[in-house]
Design a protein around this nucleic acid. Sequence first.
DNA 1: CTGTTAGCGCCTTCAC
DNA 2: GTGAAGGCGCTAACAG
Lengths: 336, 336
Amino acid sequence: MSSPTPQPAKAATLHDVAREAGVSLITASRALTNPGLVSDKTIERVQQAVAATGYIPNLLAGGLKSRRSLMVAGLVPTISVPQFLPTVKALTETLDAAGYQLILGQSGYDHSREEKLLNTMLSRRPDGIVITGLVHSQQAREQLSRLGIPVVETWDLSDRPVDMMVGFSHVKVGSAVAGFFLSRGWQRVGIATGDDHRAMMRHDGFLAAIGRAVPTAIVPAPSSVEWGRRAMAQLLEKDPQLRAVYCSSDGFAQGLMIEAQSRGLRIPQDLAVCGFGDADFSAHLQPSLTTVHIDGAGIGRIAAQLIIDRCAGKTIDQPIVDVGFHIIERQSTAPA
Amino acid sequence: MSSPTPQPAKAATLHDVAREAGVSLITASRALTNPGLVSDKTIERVQQAVAATGYIPNLLAGGLKSRRSLMVAGLVPTISVPQFLPTVKALTETLDAAGYQLILGQSGYDHSREEKLLNTMLSRRPDGIVITGLVHSQQAREQLSRLGIPVVETWDLSDRPVDMMVGFSHVKVGSAVAGFFLSRGWQRVGIATGDDHRAMMRHDGFLAAIGRAVPTAIVPAPSSVEWGRRAMAQLLEKDPQLRAVYCSSDGFAQGLMIEAQSRGLRIPQDLAVCGFGDADFSAHLQPSLTTVHIDGAGIGRIAAQLIIDRCAGKTIDQPIVDVGFHIIERQSTAPA
DNA sequence: CTGTTAGCGCCTTCAC
DNA sequence: GTGAAGGCGCTAACAG
């Protein structure tokens, strides 16, 4: 009591709580984590002891024994692309509600970092892993399945999941947009895309549906408004008569529209534009932007639930979930 | 070898590595975390054993004894407001480079959740905490200082830090924008703002510098393009002759511009607009948006470094860092 | 419903 | 340079 040390008091442990409450260690433990096994009177005494001691559980210690860290690793290419934000948000919230915490990792758009980051994450012993995109490294794939930890690959689909998947087909998105352009009668079409794997899959689907090469501008991911302006300039150089262009993100599309408009082109009368992602601003641009809507929050919610269910020992009847997509037609692609 | 169990092989522990390498447990430990204490030959043997066993360190276990979790808790109001993204990104990257991992928490814009979230985070025994904004709850403040864990409050300044601070004065931002408007000779000014604490501080600074009440639109945080359109409508109802308006974010300002333009107002000739945050698109809007630039990435970097240094036992000579701000003048506030 | 025992995997402390 | 004990804080597995 008379200790003059200003240093932080050693944090209370469950031991202190148990002593304060006059019960054994394990009873205190159960009162907090499994109250069904303990009498109401005891629970109350323990809770009072918790308040009195200022006890904060140490999940690290508990996790060591129980082999449940209550953490889930989330890997995104980069946090600064708004596209994945609703997913990260829903992931965090759904996990939080179930007592799990998200630890965030940025893999960059470079696959070589993927393996290293994964190892860093694994050393935290997460109860699950949610990855934006597919796991590409074969070594990482094997390691993950060997470890047997729940993995959800998101924002894409393939027939070779590491474990579980929540996403949609980027190839189909590309061909759907191409089909939409063709249905409008637009033949002189172009594409502006970031160079990341998923955007390139959409690019491939677009080309396949068009059936021939088209003017293309490829920029380093993540694409941006600024890159959009440059991409538009490039495309108009390749074909000044371009009638419609598909862009790999809405911010990117906004940049193309700005550049086109600043060159006196009218959208959609002279040039139609379609984006991807349905950003919050897209409906409010002038003209409003036609885009492909993805339920990003849904992806996060479902991915989290898959992890939670798997950790709870439930069997997953549908380990691969296709959330689909749909084209939202707005003014930027209105018929002439 | 002939075990038919398809279940995950029990992950290798340091014990397995040591046996494989023919050294004791502790030598294996040192070879990995403190190679200076071990002979080169031993290090190599251990590293081979690591590769052979597929060993992944268990930081949970190590942290239990060493009392260093190598995790830092990061609290943001919500991940989905782009404003804090550069901070989160820089934070993640700087911490990662020093071997720390960020665990992300969303406190919402509701202070009551702050305490609960903080407790959840503390149960992971983070080595540091970075908070967006100030810690408001008195109980939380006391708890944090009692625990003695490094805390950085960011994106704001006050004279009563829990521990360390990296930010700038929102009141000064507000008065600077007001001063800028007045220097242009604009008297009929208005303000559109989200209702979060920091935006309201800017609001207060703005009003104080103007010296009287002005038409105001307050929307629930986080503000958005859509809220911007509504806010503009409200403001024009209050004063159809409004000459200049200050908005609490750039996306929000974009919404105001869109609404104003759709009503036939010319920006900046009829109405000038200033935003806050210098989003990536702001320079590219038509007209380009005048805004207040904050070095968000710098805040993240400095906050991470403060935590890292403190954990390394270094004394911090400057625990309160003012990163300042500056107004970026663009077309949306060009003089008549 | 409650308690005892025995670790989880690693690192600190002390010895050699 | 290396090793042997002991314990970080908690919880599974068994008793009673």
